[in-house]
Amino acid sequence: MTDNRDNKNKAEMDIRIDYDNVDVKDIMSQIQDRIAAQAEAPSEKENKKEEPVRSLSMPELPDPQPTRVPISKSKRILLKLMRPFTPLIKLLILPVQHEFMESVYRLDFTNKRLDHLNQKMEQVLESLSGELYRSTDHLSTKIDEYNDALNLRLDLAFHDLGKAMEYTKLLHSLSHNLVVEMSKLKIEEEDMKIKARILEKDFEFLNNRERALEKQVFK
């Protein structure tokens, strides 16, 4: 079945094959040459391709304008009414329909592929946006967490700083008091030293007086 149909293809391809000693390299090189030749003369091939379609369909077409045959009045009116639709009728009758149908089929297939690809793309975009949303959400939660932790640490730091300032103030006041007290003590010490010197002098005077009195008594 396939062989019958495609014997034509093989004849068209005109590949020389030695079936007892098949050489695939040679076959492939003939195929490549054939493709190269077809690529060089595409227009000829297209003409050849289109030819049989026309020859098959054209003879069967009814003549759209039979001018010399007598036509009845009613038929003439009918033809006149149908005249605006003539291109459409021609389109349906002429072999263009085959190509038209083929184009429609291909367009339909292309549309389906495009729909399928669109659907795929939408799915991918949807999953991407979901991923993005999740990532953003996750990121903002993380940022909030970091913010909270940072604020807590700042509060603690400020609290410690306040404490340190109070301590510094107290230390300053303490130092001041200490200096004042030391100064007072120094003055008192000086005062005591003077008093001690006065007492020593008094004591010396009293000793001298004692000795003078003793001399007066024993005389």
């Binding site: 396939t2 062989d3 495609d6 014997n7 293809n9 094959i17």
Partner: peptide, 12 residues
Amino acid sequence: ASLDLLLSDGNL
């Protein structure tokens, strides 16, 4: 072209 040839030529 290769498929054409393979499908059309049973001997091959």
